[in-house]
């Protein structure tokens, strides 16, 4: 870790093929059970309230304009592309640790209840995008009877 650190609390990261990579190929059905914790967790959390659905999407270091949010009533998709320039290495400036994601990222979720996408609101604060989606309540999203003509 250069001058900054002698070691960090993440331990040693080794490259190449790991044991669990081999087992994943041999017993694909077991991997979800055995290595559940190693599957990247979703950045989204969905909370259903009485009148609305609140979705929180954790993605630090962005601007509100970096996000693209789409909803089709039952599905929500969030795309993010940082417009902030990736700090480049130049001169004596160099990375000794580089773990943050600077690529484009996209995640979709099936909402547990139908919502009204046209009335959705979103705000970005402290690295978290909060999306409020009003739920379809009686009267607003009632099924419509379609008359069948002869």
């Amino acid at each position: 870790m250069g001058f900054l650190t002698k070691r960090n609390d993440r331990g040693i990261v080794s490259g190449g093929v790991m044991f669990h990579d081999l087992v994943r190929n041999w017993f694909p059905d077991l991997t979800d059970v055995l290595w559940k914790d190693m599957i990247p967790e979703s950045r989204m959390s969905v909370m259903v309230e009485e009148d609305f659905v609140k979705v929180m999407f954790a993605f630090a270091g962005c601007k509100a304009s970096d996000f693209d949010v789409e909803s089709s009533g039952m599905f929500l998709t969030v795309r993010v592309a940082r417009r902030t320039k990736y700090p480049a290495e130049e001169g004596d400036k160099h990375y000794t640790c580089n773990e943050r994601c600077w690529n484009e990222y996209q995640e979709s979720v099936k909402l547990p209840v139908p919502v009204i996408p046209a009335e959705a609101k979103a705000k970005y604060k402290d690295g978290v995008l909060e999306i409020h989606l009003p739920r379809c309540t009686k009267g607003k999203c009632d099924a419509k009877r379609v008359k069948v003509n002869a």
Partner: peptide
């Protein structure tokens, strides 16, 4: 997750702590 950028006079460390 963290990024550490080292220079001659200083090091800058960035930690992602969404929601804090």
């Amino acid at each position: 997750v963290a990024d550490i950028i080292e220079e001659n006079e200083k090091a800058t460390v960035y930690f992602e702590i969404p929601g804090a």
